[in-house]
Design a protein around this nucleic acid. Structure first.
Lengths: 127, 127
DNA sequence: ATTTCATTCAACTCTGAGGTTGAACGATAT
DNA sequence: ATATCGTTCAACCTCAGAGTTGAATGAAAT
């Protein structure tokens, strides 16, 4: 277990939080400013409790912070975790284009080799 | 009911796919070029079947496409869905900074009003 | 024709996510 | 003191996600 060492737990939480339309809507609403849980829940066709749970998921991802003011809880949006997510996506795109460039270079240089049916690529067990 | 109209199904699939470390690792591996399912599965501490399922999730999100070559399936990375995800994130950040600017402007202009305990914000039922 | 290889399909388990309702709790209002 | 408001906690349901094992399928090699 654990294997690949690439285990950024923060990203997991961030992306999981973003992967739900209700939660994305919540964030959208929150980017306009602080909102109470009840007011937040109002537009949704689901119970207040359900929304409360979504908020907890967003808090786990640190995309939302809570400020208790008397009996009401004011929620606000914290965009910081989005940085990591955006960075990951950008990295992927960069890798992709890099690889494309390398491929293009290869095609330009090697133009004579033509192994017909048997292509041999990367980590192959080779029996 | 339904209200917010913001229900982009593609984003759901994309972000759900990205929210798992195994799948992110798969994408990373794939951005270096086409890989067979078996080779893809090798580094992971899980069954081939499990990886196969992860691949299916990535295909649902159209982040991975499959090319059948004889008995082996060559998987490749398709970065297009990342655009929508990145765009959503950027929009959020933009909204956030916009709101901050507006707030700052407000603070600069209104400086005398001070409602003590009772703050009244947005959609309030007002009994 | 038979075996082996690459992959999926099918069935099953376990866990957690998303939703519900009903109570509990702390703060405000009467 | 009591009722009401804002919110969570607790228990429960259902369904999908992540994993397993054991076939089944289809192409390749013998």
């Amino acid at each position: 277990m654990k294997s690949t060492m690439t285990t950024p737990a923060g990203l997991d939480h961030t992306l999981t939080a973003l992967a739900d339309p209700t939660r994305r809507a919540i964030l959208q609403r929150l980017s306009a400013g602080e909102v109470r849980v009840t007011d937040l829940a109002q537009p949704f066709a689901m119970s207040l409790n359900a929304v409360s749970k979504h908020v907890r998921v967003l808090e786990r991802a640190q995309l939302v912070t809570r400020r208790r003011a008397g009996r009401e809880h004011l929620l606000s949006f914290n965009p910081k975790p989005l940085d990591e997510a955006a960075a990951w996506i950008e990295t992927q795109r960069a890798l992709w284009t890099t690889r494309l460039d390398a491929l293009e270079a290869l095609l330009r240089a090697e133009d004579r080799v033509a192994a017909p049916t048997r292509r041999n690529k990367g980590t192959r067990h080779e029996r």
